[in-house]
Each structure stands twice: as structure tokens, then as C-alpha cells.
Design a protein around this nucleic acid. Structure first.
Lengths: 233, 233
DNA sequence: ACAAAAGTGTTGAGCGTACACCCATGG
DNA sequence: CCATGGGTGTACGCTCAACACTTTTGT
């Protein structure tokens, strides 16, 4: 069909801020661009939405194709849309950005579309490193969203495995917020906030008393009262 | 099919949830659709984004064209994007939704594009009334966003004039949250939260002691500590 | 004088912070 | 037996909800 629309046409993409904790630091997943524009530059995983595809589905598909971690995503929420007329030299492209969280220890699969998918510390991506398009801004928004969502949702549990200790959860908060937290007070708050329940098992990690294992309570996402960001030390 | 682009083509629209308080009830601005699809049905103001236009600019322009209130908007933030493949019978349309707040007493201008722009109570729009497209869902998301943003931002001040009394502000919270609040406690909280400052004037509304007028402190948008939603009575 | 709304005082309950202390394990 | 991390006890200070009370006006 000849294009006779009375309305302007756009391309729509999805881009995903994928966060995880590695080596006690917040990392984001980035891929090296294989073609222009920005060939060779790091970018957030993402790509063009298919004609009959939902936006969320597109985010998961692109994540799987480019990094192989699509099925491991523990949480995926819409971050916002970015549509400056000049944000993409190929034309008028609106990108719907998503925030995804992975548990620690997930590696980008080899043999996927993108020759290189890598975890990079958020600090360096937001520091000197230059990302493609407006991805630096999208990443910054994603990190800020994660910081505030830790306060009043169960998002932290998406950064750890299905069974976790209170100390693992505490590291998540400490790393994402960049503060030290009182271990005792944190333990009380988190075990009485209603979003985690003991599995009954316990586990030994190095010296010290074995820690009880908890799991995330199905469907409990609101934290009441919220965990406050107040630092210790 | 002659479309030779290597990527699928979309239309992009903006839709705006415009909230204001009228007659002690939360209202939203809706326009009657003049053409198909959904001809004659109420819809959120909005329309197609121009080729060289930013998304926020498009929201303001459409609001001005369809309702004449574009310049009176006191707050405009992105709500999210809606892109189900079937959400619009005209084709693949992704809509970027915005949340706008107006002070009370703003009327939709006559002589604008839309024959009919009207304030309607949110309760009826989310109740029986049937809106065009997925606008009911967008409106619901907008109202929920407003409810939670009252807690920890200065959004409430956008619902009142540039100078306002503490009681006016309290009515905003009571109407949007649908609860009664203790006048004394509210007064203390709000005047010590740092986002309002006295103008020095005072004003008389009916019987009772005259109320001091306040204005919103420029740039103060975060509420610390947040106002809690706990009801009274 | 009375009603009504603005604004301040007061009090008791509950929560958060800080930190002491006990528990259970590895070396 | 010591070091290390898990987990509990406790006390002090602060905030908040509830509500009594004072202030300032209209009728």
C-alpha cells in the first residue's frame, strides 16, 4: 500500500535499563553497537518494536535476543518515554524505556545477537563513559527510580535469588543507596514488614552463625512502613 | 506494500489527564470526539505528535487547541506510554500519556477545536461512563499517580491559586484522598514542611478568623517528611 | 452572645536510632 | 578460645494522632 496517512509517522523502540549487583557494586547491562549510528559505542539493550507486538513483549524479546537474559528478568516496569526530535539520527524515533532487575550471578549468554553484552558498573557508565543516543539520561533515570522504589516496594528481592538471607538483602540496599545500614535494625524492619517469610532452612556462608533463609511473599509488593534511607556510621 | 522502511511504522499520540477540583470533587477534563472512531464518545484531550515536535510540547499544544487551557497548566509530568497493538482501530498507535494539574476555577475556552470540552467528576468517568480507546485505564493511572504524589511532593499547590490558605490546601488533600483530615495537625505539618511560605496577607472567607495566605516556595517540590494519608474521624 | 473557622498546646502511644549484648559457627 | 557474622534487647528521643483550647471574625 502506498503510504497516504494524514498523520506523521514514527519509529518506536524499546530500551531496557537492566540492573544487577556484582562484586558489591551496582551494574548495568550494556551491548556494543555493531552498526551505525554510534557503531562501537556501548548502548542499552533494545530495538525496534514489531508491528503486532506489545511494548512489554518487545522489551523482553530484545533483551533475550541481545543478551540472552530475557527469561531471567525478575521485575520489569515501564520507566518512561524519550522522544526528542533529534535523539536518533535515523529519523523520528520514540523510545519506551523499561527498568529490569536481575538476581546476582546472571551472565549474558554467548551466541546471542550482540557480539558483546557486558555488565559495567553504573558508576563508570554515568561517569566518564559515553553511551549511545540519550542512553546516559535513561540509565540515570532508571537508577534513580530503583533507589526510590527500594524504599516502598519489595524490589530489593529481585536482586537476590529465590531464597536469600537478610544480610544479602541488606547488601542490596547498601549498594544501591550507597550507605551503611545497621544490621540489627535492618533485620527487624525487614522481617516485620510483611514482604518476606522464612523458608525454614538456614545456610552457612563463611564464619559466623548460620543465617535463616527467606523468600519473597507472593503478591506483597508494598512496604508499610517504608524503609528509610537514613545512613549509619 | 510499498513501505520500504526496514522498520515498522507507528503513529504517536499524546493524551493528557487534566485534573482539577470543582465543587469539592475531583474532576477531569474530557472532550467529545467529533469523528470516528468513537465519534460522540468522551475522550481525554490529545492528538497526534508533529514530526519535529517534542512530546511535552505536543501535550501542551493539544491541550491548548482542544480545550484552551494549555497556558494555565501548573504541573505537567509524564505518566507512561500505552501501546497495545489493538488499542486504536486506525492502526498501530502508541500514546504517551501526561498528567496535568490546573487550579480551581479554570474553564475550558469556547471557540477552540473541540466543540465540547467539559469538566466531569472522576468518580463518574471511572464509574459507569464509557470513555474512548483505553482512556479509562489511563485516567485511572493518572488519578492514582496524583494520590500518591500528594504524599511526597508539593503537587497539591498546583490545584489552588498562586496565593492560598492552609484550609484550601487541606481541601485538596481531603478531596483527592477521599478522607477527612485534622485541621490543626494538618496546619502544623504543612507550615513546617518547607514547601509553603506566608505572603504576609490574610483573607476573610465567610465567618471565622481570617486565614493567612501562603505561596508555594519556588523549587521546593520534595516533602520531607511526607504527609501521611491517615484519616481522621 | 453565639457559631464558625484559624491556629496553638498538650499528652500519651508508638516508632526509629543507637548500641549493648547474646548466639552459633569456623579456624 | 577467638574472630566473625546472625540476631535480640533496650533505652532514649522524636513524631504523630487525638483533642482541648484560644483567637478572631460574621451574624
Amino acid at each position: 500500500m502506498v503510504y497516504t496517512s494524514e498523520h506523521p509517522i514514527f519509529y518506536v523502540t524499546v530500551d531496557v535499563v537492566v540492573l544487577a549487583i556484582r562484586d558489591d557494586a551496582l551494574h548495568a547491562l550494556v551491548v556494543e553497537r555493531g552498526s551505525n549510528p554510534f557503531k562501537g559505542r556501548w548502548a542499552l539493550p533494545g530495538g525496534f518494536v514489531e508491528p503486532e507486538e506489545g511494548l512489554r513483549d518487545a522489551a523482553v524479546r530484545e533483551l533475550e535476543e541481545e543478551t540472552g537474559v530475557g527469561t531471567r528478568v525478575r521485575r520489569l516496569e515501564q520507566l518512561g518515554s524519550y522522544g526528542d526530535p533529534d535523539r536518533d539520527p535515523r529519523g523520528r524515533v520514540v523510545s519506551v524505556a523499561w527498568l529490569a532487575v536481575l538476581p546476582h550471578g546472571v551472565a549474558p549468554a554467548s551466541g546471542s545477537d550482540a557480539a558483546d553484552a557486558e555488565w559495567k558498573p553504573v558508576s563508570s557508565l554515568l561517569g566518564g563513559e559515553r553511551l549511545a543516543f540519550d542512553h546516559r539520561s535513561i540509565l540515570a533515570d532508571g537508577v534513580e527510580r530503583a533507589r526510590s522504589k527500594l524504599e516502598y516496594t519489595a524490589m530489593a528481592t529481585a536482586f537476590v535469588g529465590p531464597k536469600f538471607t537478610v544480610a544479602e538483602l541488606r547488601r542490596v540496599y547498601e549498594v544501591v543507596w550507597g550507605v551503611g545500614l545497621d544490621a540489627g535494625n535492618f533485620h527487624r524492619k525487614v522481617t516485620s514488614a510483611g514482604f518476606v517469610e522464612p523458608t525454614g532452612d538456614s545456610v552457612q556462608r563463611g564464619p559466623g552463625r548460620p543465617a535463616a533463609l527467606y523468600r519473597h511473599v507472593e503478591g506483597a509488593d508494598e512496604l508499610n512502613p517504608p524503609l528509610t534511607r537514613s545512613a549509619l556510621r
